[in-house]
């Protein structure tokens, strides 16, 4: 990783830096859209790596109040939340998007109860 990516994620999570440019979305709608536009190979690689790191991520994020996550922790948390989207492709559809569903489409996740959104 080049120098400018230092500090993007908390120390100890440098192995996930490669996912930051593509997989960090600030809302559920953005994360849904990112996954829908990703290739199955990218989704699978992200899923596999993130699944193995989830326990450590949740433990790390859990040290901070959710409504005041420092920027690198928030970024890490958003990577973690993107795993839920990757799981739809890997565990349910076995392809990036729902079978027989058009893309793009007009369905929007307008609002969630996510405190960091």
């Amino acid at each position: 990783m080049s120098g400018h990516s230092e500090g993007l994620l908390p120390p100890g999570f440098e192995d996930l830096l490669e996912f930051v440019p593509h997989w960090v979305g600030s809302t559920a709608q953005e994360r849904w859209d990112i996954r829908a536009r990703s290739s199955m190979d990218d989704i699978r690689r992200f899923y596999t790596v993130m699944l193995a790191r989830s326990e450590a991520i949740l433990a790390h994020v859990g040290q901070f109040p959710l409504d005041a996550l420092p920027e690198p922790v928030l970024r890490l948390f958003r990577l973690q939340l993107a795993l839920a989207q990757a799981a739809m492709a890997v565990e349910l559809h076995r392809q990036p998007r729902a079978i027989n569903s058009p893309f793009p489409h007009s369905v929007r996740i307008v609002r969630t109860a996510e405190p960091t959104a």
Partner: peptide, 25 residues
């Protein structure tokens, strides 16, 4: 409910993601 922990946020994100797929279908 509003999630209060990182783990609950992940649960709810999974719930949101699944509902979105169902509604889309």
């Amino acid at each position: 409910p509003r999630p209060t922990t990182a783990h609950e946020c992940l649960q709810q994100e999974l719930y949101v993601a699944r509902i979105a797929e169902i509604l889309l279908e």
